[in-house]
Each structure stands twice: as structure tokens, then as C-alpha cells.
């Protein structure tokens, strides 16, 4: 073994850009929660985000249902990735997704009739949530099972988190409650418009404004530091 050239231990195999297998790291999971948050960063899946977030419990239910579909369809797409012909892949993904959504639809119907009634058609509309198709196309169709599951879980939880941050704000402002518990005294006048459709647009807009402001402030600070360093 002494005559072999010294190996560089940290150098990975040359990456093939078309068939890159991602190694499983914490980042695989965490990316979906913050850095590539499907709602706040990528602006995907807007319809359920706005429509079912008039209370925190609806937001959680919707988020978990979406996470389940994301995991199930991701796993199946990842397992079948060598067998699905490229020309019909989108149609195949949609059928796989629709299957899992039907499962979720019947499951929620059986578990909680109340939640089923308040989410309404939006459970079935998970089929056309762009996050799920986007993950299937961009991630699951290229990666092995385990990273797909971990990444899907991260994305799903990121989605749930975003829904919850909208849902809780709208419920507190519009109804004075959080998860059904009253937060304020008798004198509280609910800001009713927040639980109605316009509130969804306003609250999401406000969150995006906040994030844009934070980002701008951070960038300015980095710029200032760079300026200080350059001037010595």
C-alpha cells in the first residue's frame, strides 16, 4: 500500500452534475425549515396558506396533512425513479400524489369530522399544491429514499411552521383566541377582518415585509463592516 499516491481524505468523488446524490446532513432537513422555506422564501403553495389559516388548529391540520402527502409521494417517487419514463413523469407524479391525497382525505374524514368540515375542499386541493409536485420533480426523482424522506419532512414542517405563524396571528387578532383558548378579557373587540379573506393577504404581506426588512438590515450591516475593513 505504500506505493499508492497519498490520498486526500476529504476530497469527494467528482460530482456528476446530472446525477448528484446528496449525502445526508443536518442541512438536508433544516433547509426546508428556514433557508428554503416553501412559503416565505419560495412563495409556493399560496392557496392553502391563505385559505385555511383563519385559525391555528386548521393551520396545523393542513400542515400535517401536506407533510404526510409530501413524505408518501416523495418516498414512492424516489423508489420508482428508475422505472418512470421521463416523458410521462409529471403525469405519473400527479397520479401518485392524488393517491396519497385520497388516503389523507378519507383519513381526516374518519378522524375528525369537525376539521374535515372546516378545511373543506382544501384537503383534496393538496393535489395541486405546487410544493409537492416541485419536490417530486426537483428532489425525489433524483435522490435515494432516505434523503428524500428527511428533506420532505423538513419541507413539510417548514410549511406547517409558516401556516402556523399565519394562523396564530390571524386567530389572535381576529378572534382573540389561540387554539380555542381565550387570550384577552371581556373587553376585547375582535378585529374581524383578519379571519376573513382580506386578512390572509394582509398578514402574509406583513410577514414578507418583516423578512424583507430583516434581510435588508443584515445586508446593510455586512456592507458597512466590509466598508470599515476596506478603510482599515
Amino acid at each position: 500500500m505504500t506505493d499508492s499516491p497519498p490520498k486526500t481524505p476529504s476530497a469527494p468523488a467528482p460530482a456528476d452534475p446530472f446525477n448528484r446524490q446528496e449525502t445526508l446532513t443536518a442541512d438536508t432537513f433544516l433547509r426546508g425549515l428556514w433557508q428554503e422555506n416553501p412559503v416565505f422564501v419560495m412563495l409556493l403553495g399560496m392557496c392553502p396558506v391563505l385559505a385555511v389559516t383563519n385559525s391555528a388548529i386548521n393551520a396545523i391540520g393542513m400542515g400535517l396533512a401536506t407533510t404526510f402527502v409530501l413524505l408518501g409521494s416523495g418516498a414512492l417517487v424516489s423508489l420508482l425513479r428508475h422505472w418512470i419514463p421521463k416523458q410521462v413523469r409529471i403525469a405519473s407524479y400527479i397520479v401518485i400524489i392524488a393517491t396519497f391525497v385520497t388516503v389523507v382525505d378519507y383519513a381526516i374524514h374518519a378522524i375528525s369530522l369537525e376539521l374535515y368540515a372546516s378545511l373543506g375542499a382544501f384537503i383534496q386541493l393538496i393535489v395541486v399544491n405546487c410544493i409537492i409536485l416541485g419536490r417530486a420533480e426537483a428532489y425525489a426523482s433524483k435522490q435515494r429514499l432516505l434523503p428524500t424522506l428527511v428533506n420532505g419532512l423538513g419541507m413539510g414542517l417548514g410549511f406547517t411552521l409558516a401556516l402556523l405563524s399565519l394562523g396564530s396571528v390571524r386567530e389572535i387578532l381576529g378572534n382573540g383566541t389561540l387554539l380555542g383558548h381565550a387570550l384577552f378579557g371581556e373587553g376585547f373587540q375582535p378585529w374581524l377582518v383578519m379571519v376573513l379573506p382580506p386578512g390572509g393577504f394582509f398578514v402574509l404581506g406583513a410577514w414578507l415585509l418583516l423578512f424583507a426588512w430583516l434581510k435588508q438590515r443584515r445586508e446593510r450591516r455586512i456592507l458597512e463592516q466590509a466598508g470599515v475593513a476596506a478603510h482599515g
Binding site: L43, F201, L204, L208, W213
Partner: peptide
């Protein structure tokens, strides 16, 4: 303001339109 350009502004506009449609 530069902060409010893009998606945030569009959503606020949509909110106002939605308010009108109510």
C-alpha cells in the same frame, strides 16, 4: 420603499382588492 417592493406589495394590494370584494 425598497423593502416593500415585490411580493409583499402585491399581497397587500390583493388584500385591498379582496376587502373591496367583500
Amino acid at each position: 420603499p425598497t423593502v416593500s417592493q415585490g411580493a409583499a406589495m402585491s399581497l397587500m394590494l390583493a388584500g385591498l382588492l379582496s376587502l373591496a370584494f367583500m
